[in-house]
Design a protein around this nucleic acid. Sequence first.
DNA 1: CGCACGATGCGCT
DNA 2: GCGCATCGTGCGA
Length: 213
Amino acid sequence: MKLLAPNWQPSNLSFSPLPQRFFSNDTVSVAQKLLGKGLFVQSGQDVLLSEIVEVEAYLQDDPASHSFRGLTARNRPMFGPAGTCYVYLSYGINFCMNVVTAPRGQGEAVLLRAAIPLVGIKLFFKNRGIPFDNQPKSMKNLLSGPGKLTQGFGIDLNFNGRSYDRNDFKLVDLGKTLRSTEITCSPRIGISKGTELPLRFCVKDSLWLSRRG
DNA sequence: CGCACGATGCGCT
DNA sequence: GCGCATCGTGCGA
């Protein structure tokens, strides 16, 4: 199994953040375009990079969205500028991280649900509380779910409201372009309202999803 | 002010 | 496959 891209060196980790105009577009389009993009987080000398393979869109007038009932103290970042990070605690246990989208503060966002670990594998294991090994089974368990992804990256409420355009916290272009035929859409997971909408987007047949797309 | 309920993950069966 | 942990949010009283 091909687990890692071979050429990730410190010298080619100096990606530019995706510009704000990338996020200030139609939320469904942004969600699909986030597939194949990189999430980069640096803390001191520790660098973490992954490739996003699964997302969900949350829209205006969407009963499953935290923004559905309007602005509250919790969902305030959702109404902020495109490219803002919205983090919340799920089930009292896991954090989930979103990217605010749409041209104006419409309360729309994309939930990051799963990613391929690329750089910082040992730290991903450590953050996840899993003993390090090179088994494919373990690797696929690192970031395959919204709570696992935030735990792997060490994302918590400190990141809430932050912009994804910092040198130490950014979404980046990894230089790959997915064809629309490589993207699947399906109903969103773990919600009780808006379940009929196919707003979950996955890299087709990826081995790194939270569950089969 | 009380309380029901999650945009989930894990361990056990 | 299923039950449970665990807690902040926000709605209804």
